[in-house]
Design a protein around this nucleic acid. Sequence first.
DNA 1: TGAATACGTCTTAGATGCAAGATAGATGCA
DNA 2: TGCATCTATCTTGCATCTAAGACGTATTCA
Lengths: 214, 214
Amino acid sequence: MSKPMSASDQVYRHVRELILDGGIGPGELITEGQFVEATGLSRTPVREAFLRLEAEGWLKLYPKRGALVVPVQPEEKEQVLEARQLIETHAMTTIAANADAAEALSRRLLQITERTREAMEADDIEAFTTLDAEFHLALVQSSGNDILSDIYRGLRDRLRRMTTRSVWHDKTRMEVIVKDHGDLAEIVARRDVEAFSSRLMEHMRATHDRAHSR
Amino acid sequence: MSKPMSASDQVYRHVRELILDGGIGPGELITEGQFVEATGLSRTPVREAFLRLEAEGWLKLYPKRGALVVPVQPEEKEQVLEARQLIETHAMTTIAANADAAEALSRRLLQITERTREAMEADDIEAFTTLDAEFHLALVQSSGNDILSDIYRGLRDRLRRMTTRSVWHDKTRMEVIVKDHGDLAEIVARRDVEAFSSRLMEHMRATHDRAHSR
DNA sequence: TGAATACGTCTTAGATGCAAGATAGATGCA
DNA sequence: TGCATCTATCTTGCATCTAAGACGTATTCA
């Protein structure tokens, strides 16, 4: 890996990972001191990491009090899902206008899906989640709009914090995900935007929103 | 105003404004020292501002060398416009599903447009641009998705750096903007998504993309 | 002349010092 | 006891210091 990995980068990733994986928990109040002790570094890099995390919306800094891990609003999941749906469907619309692109993408997606299935069979959760992300990102990226791709990545991170870990450990659920991805790839080949949109909606609901009521 | 306005906040806004208004120019290399001198503050707050600006994508920090004002990619404007179009149209789609909401929004938009016209006639550029932003944001916000609203705000800032200042000083152009907004508000009342989408596209092209060729 | 290298300067990464704001718990008073 | 206030402690905002990386330029050597 080609990483400079400065001290503040390390702290940044460390804290970020804790937040995303739920190791810290929304609403919790953390301090610089905690991580100075934990990492053995000085306050400067810890401070910089906190600043960055605040800029990205994970923390809210309260002067002389500490840093609050921004709580997840109840409506946030709905909104993130809506935004992801919007961007992915838009990408699909773009791609559907070009038969060659659609075919190439479909092949690529099937390939990723195949690797995802292998990861599942090998019980490699790490690889599975990475490939799941890769699938959706490949779709968005193939539309060629880097800005939307960046936004999409951000949305995915936000969702990650809200999705129960158990999802990625449930074999049945993993199978459903692989099947969904296969279906979606096939729909891409057919360039059927409508079908794609509704199938994607089901897929995301099933994955991230087990107890969807409305 | 309810602003804590810490030292680093000040530097942050100062530098950010310079970048957005073109006072610094893409591709330029700036250093902490410059702003330490300019502001009389110490390196710490300047550094924090730089960090924040990097996190938001305005600067790229090169270790031991300085901070590069991220250059605008030639395709970036296209992509930002596409993303804005996507989000605004999506908002319109949501709103069109609810007759009452559509009517309320339309009224609100006409109101803002009226104030915009007044600003134009009073030659108050500052107020004019603020109200222009308010118009579009009101539209997006009325769809109720805070996350999309935040994203939209970010897109607007990016665009600001790419839009010639002259746009906001050209009386003719200002008149066109006011007229466009009036049209859009009226289309919202009619709940005609298709018309809205194409009218919006024209509007944004005319405003931000004078020399659109493709 | 031309390439390698040594050196001086500029700039930042990170450590530390200091002072002030915020809070919780102790203390004093009615 | 109940309430106000005082104080010790915790935490951060900002300043400053050290050291090391990156470059440009001058110097040396062939």
